[in-house]
Design a protein around this nucleic acid. Structure first.
Lengths: 226, 226
DNA sequence: ACAAAAGTGTTAAGAATACACCCATGT
DNA sequence: ACATGGGTGTATTCTTAACACTTTTGT
């Protein structure tokens, strides 16, 4: 980091992998490219990081402008990886700093943007621009790992939820079923859930107790969930 | 990522956290700054990432020029995190992509560089420029986590080593003692070590069997080591 | 009455931990 | 012969995994 007046660096971009559960399935937010390259193809929301703004600010701008989503309302965002695209990007040397966000209900405002933001199930992704498919799969891996030893799942859940909803969220992310009794035993032993005195009455069956997370922020939980 | 001809982005730098074991203690490579800001203070080896070179190439250049270390000889390098320094860096907006490397014996060639590269024990760090102390502590955390479920430790070991040396390496990184019998039982069950038919004779005691890693590349190991 | 999801404990298997003595060598 | 680190097994505890029936509600 010497003094070096005529510095010229790569173009810096940020890309966002925004996950959300819709009907017990994991969805990811994509936008349709309005410019070359990859005009018309689906891609992760992304954009330039200009001098003077943090990557988080750039991310907030991208999500707001391209998908109508308010970044500050997202309960959890974490950095994933920084990719070099020296050769791959048709526009020349860029590096992209990628973030993963989790949301409970982030509604993309397709109307006031040009990029047609939509959620796609992770299991049925369309053809994607760049290497964005790999990025999504990498993000999924990281997400699975995160929910296995932290409370990160809170960011995919509503304020109040039943234990069955929580279990279903895990199953959607992990891609396999879990044992009901073991799951409940574990979570109730963890001391991170608080019972509310409300019940969810949603059908012709016994009502379920509603719980909430004591802390809606990331914390590490020792045990691991399969 | 619209077309945007007058793009001006942040300065992109790379920083390297290079760990090495010296006499059963974990050391990190530092250089002494030859320019403002922080002239004369110790810092992680770092430098600009110019347009057209990958971050890995930039890293190789930095390690070569500032510390006389041949990047290609390092057995393991992984990306750590990308830090925003919009406000913090006195020279303006930079983002730094940080990497952690592990080496067995990387000899800094202090002579042909201006930056006085030296290894410092992680437990006794000097005052560091920027937030480099935090970066090192973060790297250490990641390293501990890595060696707990992968074979990453191979990158800190010589080609051939005794089980006691391997255990000592773990103890140096983790910062606590391990049980000898359990440690050996575990590693021999893992099927990642191959016995050589050589013995290490290094003192007035029974010679130790020398082992090597079957694969000297990163692989995941199911069990976790405390 | 029946359908549908909520709720609840025990047992068995496997993993992790604690622990102490004999062995081979150099001096 | 003694000092030094190398090498080895078992018993106990704890953790994880497997598993089925009763309860409460709406229709």
């Amino acid at each position: 980091m010497d003094a070096e007046p005529e510095y010229q660096g790569p173009v810096v971009t940020v890309d966002s992998v925004l996950f959300q559960l819709i009907q017990n399935e994991l969805y990811v937010l994509l936008t349709q490219r309005a410019y070359e390259p990859f005009l018309g193809e689906w891609a992760l929301p992304g954009g330039y990081n200009h001098r003077g703004e943090t990557t988080h600010e750039a991310l907030a701008g991208v999500l707001g402008r391209k998908a109508g989503i308010e970044y500050r309302a997202l309960p959890l965002t974490m950095q994933l990886y920084t990719f070099d695209n020296v050769a791959r990007d048709p526009r020349g040397h860029t590096i992209s700093v990628t973030y993963m966000s989790l949301a409970h209900k982030a509604v993309p405002a397709g109307s006031d943007t040009t990029q047609n933001p939509q959620f796609f199930p992770v299991s049925k992704l369309p053809k994607l621009a760049y290497d964005h498919k790999d990025i999504i799969l990498y993000a999924l891996q990281r997400l699975r790992s995160r929910i296995s030893h932290t409370n990160a799942i809170f960011a995919l859940m509503p304020e109040k939820f039943t234990l069955t909803q929580l279990q279903t969220a895990y199953e959607a992310v992990l891609g396999h079923k879990l044992d009901k009794r073991n799951f409940r035993k574990r979570w109730l032993a963890l001391d991170v859930l608080a019972p509310t005195d409300e019940l969810a009455k949603d059908g012709a069956h016994r009502p379920a107790a509603l719980y909430r997370f004591k802390q809606r922020k990331l914390q590490t939980l020792d045990p691991t969930f399969a």
